[in-house]
């Protein structure tokens, strides 16, 4: 059986907000390592990989690996019934056809209990090879969200160019063009806002902005984001959390 108690229930609410528009149904794979999820979006252009490690829960108990098939829109609706400061406990039996959720307020005088029906999901699991990327950009997650949103005004896609000087996001469309360049600035006072670049080789890649904007729904989960790129392989956008991560992979747009 699974029993996982999350002191900061708001984290789970934010995680659901970060994935529910990209994916409809997914298996939460529970093991002694924690709770993981891997799923492609409906058009098979993007892949989401989520890990909530066991040490992020107190207590965490999972005797036997379990795949909990969940409709993410339904789960997100149930989670809206939890207060932001509530402690959330997830429970499921080994033969479970429901996921039990308990929300306790901080005064411990209001306890709400919900049960969400589970479903059988026959999802494809993809093997993601360890990749050494040609360019890794670490930057403020809020800045990344702003750039994607701003450039969406101009075009459906963005060209990302990374050199040792900086990273340039450019978009061209019917109404004109625009570009935002962030210079590498590791010495700034505010570490959280620094743009850091690890570069083996310059890269120039095109991606759909619609997906990138969708990925930025994870912004409330982390102040930093990393963009890992190599020519003609999927972009990895990673938001690291205290005990886990959310990774989005996006296939590039490849030249005509």
């Amino acid at each position: 059986m699974l029993e996982a108690r999350l002191q900061t229930g708001a984290l789970l609410k934010k995680v659901l907000e970060a994935i529910k528009e990209l994916i409809t149904d997914a298996n939460f794979d529970c093991s002694d390592n924690g709770i993981a999820l891997q799923a492609m979006d409906n058009s098979h252009v993007a892949l989401v990989a989520l890990l909530l490690r066991h040490d992020g829960f107190e207590p965490y108990r999972c005797d036997r690996s379990l795949a909990l098939g969940v409709n993410l829109v339904s789960l997100s609706k149930v989670l809206r019934c939890a207060g932001n400061d509530d402690i959330i406990t997830l429970k499921a039996d080994d033969t479970a056809d429901v996921l039990s959720l308990t929300f306790e307020n901080t005064d411990n005088d209001r306890i709400s209990e919900y049960e969400l029906k589970l479903m059988d999901i026959d999802s494809e699991h993809l093997g993601i090879p360890d990749t050494t990327y040609e360019a890794v950009v670490q930057m403020s997650s809020a800045e990344f969200a702003r750039i994607c949103k701003d450039l969406q005004v101009l075009s459906d896609s963005v060209q990302i160019d990374v050199t040792k000087e900086g990273v340039k996001f450019g978009a061209k469309g019917e109404l004109g063009s625009g570009a935002v360049t962030l210079k590498q600035n590791g010495n700034v006072d505010k570490e959280e806002e620094a743009t850091l670049i690890e570069l083996q080789q310059n890269v120039s890649l095109n991606f759909s902005l619609k997906y990138l904007v969708n990925f930025t729904k994870a912004t409330p989960l982390a102040s930093r984001v990393s963009l890992s790129m190599s020519s003609e392989v999927p972009l990895l956008v990673e938001y690291k959390m205290e005990a886990g991560y959310i990774r989005y992979y996006l296939a590039p747009k490849i030249g005509e």
């Binding site: 993809l126 759909s208 296939a251």
Partner: peptide
């Protein structure tokens, strides 16, 4: 605009 490629062409099915 350049065509969008499926993510499945980059990762193998387990």
């Amino acid at each position: 605009t350049a065509p969008q490629v499926s993510i499945k062409s980059f990762f193998h099915t387990v």
